[in-house]
Simulated scan of single mutants.
Amino acid sequence: MGIEPRLGSKVFYKIGEVSQLTKLPAYVLRFWESEFKFLSPKKSRGNQRLYIRRDIETVLEIKRMLYEEGHTLEGVKRYWARRGRAASRKLTPQELAKKLRGDLQAIVKIIDAHSP
């Protein structure tokens, strides 16, 4: 599974196309949608699943974790839950001030480096 599938320049991919790209049966993709709430492709007016590039990348990551690394469904769910919490974690005022101070110091260094 070392070779990444080539995604075209399309915006949306139907489930059959995603199935071919990921080499997973469509029923597995539908099952994963029911298991992983973060994997929810849009639906067209005709109720067809429309995957975007991020959805396909998520499917490939889940596939890698399950098939190559040997994680269980529950393990993958816990991983994504932790990942989601870490991404949405709010900074304390002190952490935010420290981060902003570091960002401002980096900006000052860039300005100083480009000043005559």
Rank of each mutant, 00 (worst) to 15 (best):
M1K: 11
G2S: 00
P5A: 05
R6S: 12
R6I: 14
L7T: 08
G8C: 07
G8R: 08
S9T: 14
S9C: 09
S9E: 15
S9R: 10
F12I: 09
F12G: 03
Y13T: 04
Y13P: 07
K14H: 12
I15C: 01
E17G: 04
V18W: 00
S19R: 05
Q20T: 14
L21S: 03
T22D: 09
T22H: 07
K23S: 15
K23G: 12
L24C: 05
A26I: 09
Y27G: 06
L29W: 01
L29E: 03
R30D: 00
F31N: 14
W32K: 03
K37E: 15
F38S: 08
L39M: 04
L39K: 06
S44I: 06
G46M: 08
R49H: 01
R49L: 01
L50A: 01
Y51H: 03
D55S: 02
D55R: 03
D55E: 02
E57K: 13
E57I: 07
V59R: 06
E61A: 13
E61C: 09
I62A: 02
L66Q: 07
E68D: 14
E69V: 12
H71I: 07
K77Q: 11
R78G: 00
A81M: 10
R82D: 13
R83D: 11
R83H: 12
R85S: 01
A87Q: 12
R89E: 11
K90H: 09
K90F: 01
K90S: 10
L91T: 07
E95K: 05
L96K: 15
K98C: 05
K99H: 08
L100Y: 08
L100T: 13
R101D: 11
L104S: 05
A106Q: 14
I111Q: 05
D112Y: 06
A113K: 13
H114M: 09
S115Y: 10
S115P: 00
S115I: 11
P116K: 13
